[in-house]
Design a protein around this nucleic acid. Sequence first.
DNA 1: CGTGTAAGGAATTCTGACACG
DNA 2: CGTGTAAGGAATTCTGACACG
Lengths: 108, 108
Amino acid sequence: MENEQSYKDKKVITIGVVRELTGLSERQIRYYEERKLIFPDRSSGGSRKYSFSDIELLIEIANKIGDGVQTYDIRQEMKKKQIEKDTKTIRNKMIQGQLNAQFGIRKQ
Amino acid sequence: MENEQSYKDKKVITIGVVRELTGLSERQIRYYEERKLIFPDRSSGGSRKYSFSDIELLIEIANKIGDGVQTYDIRQEMKKKQIEKDTKTIRNKMIQGQLNAQFGIRKQ
DNA sequence: CGTGTAAGGAATTCTGACACG
DNA sequence: CGTGTAAGGAATTCTGACACG
């Protein structure tokens, strides 16, 4: 659950390769970043670095735009999903905290 | 067994990122290719592209060189390993062929 | 709104060679 | 043998802007 994901989420891919892998133009890829849909890392020189996850996300974004969804709405969707995810994480942490406090049970 | 590996073995990483990830110099990385220890893809423009597997292999190579092993000997080791692997693959295929011929058993 | 494009510059990468040892 | 380096050039990427609609 750590080593597997380390490949998928590691931001190491330059925009040219992303262009090839997604079929999108660099203009499109940069624009989606401008609209806060995607968040590449930067090299020391300023080049964008993407992960495989980012590439999958870009393809989803492009599909939605192809369906007529606007970037603003895509962003709202993503925010909502993120909140759901965070909520679950917090709930789990609270339950874990309760268990620890009462029984000292701890996940390995 | 296909999608997981597709990330690890996909050659999408430029030499600069490989340098950062391995701590090796570009000179070293290119030299190991010259000695036939590593085989990056090339972009249309000629830039080298490496996979995460390549990065792991580069680290192994560098460790061996640090131990005093010469590139030629590392190459022999790698060849030997590859032959063992191929032998196993061929043996499996032959067994599979026998089973198919006699019983029509087929792997899904 | 989402995308194409030309512009100019900076960062990245490439090859072949000389150097050291 | 394995690696550093300076050299010159080519490929890659960056930003800000104009255009269309």
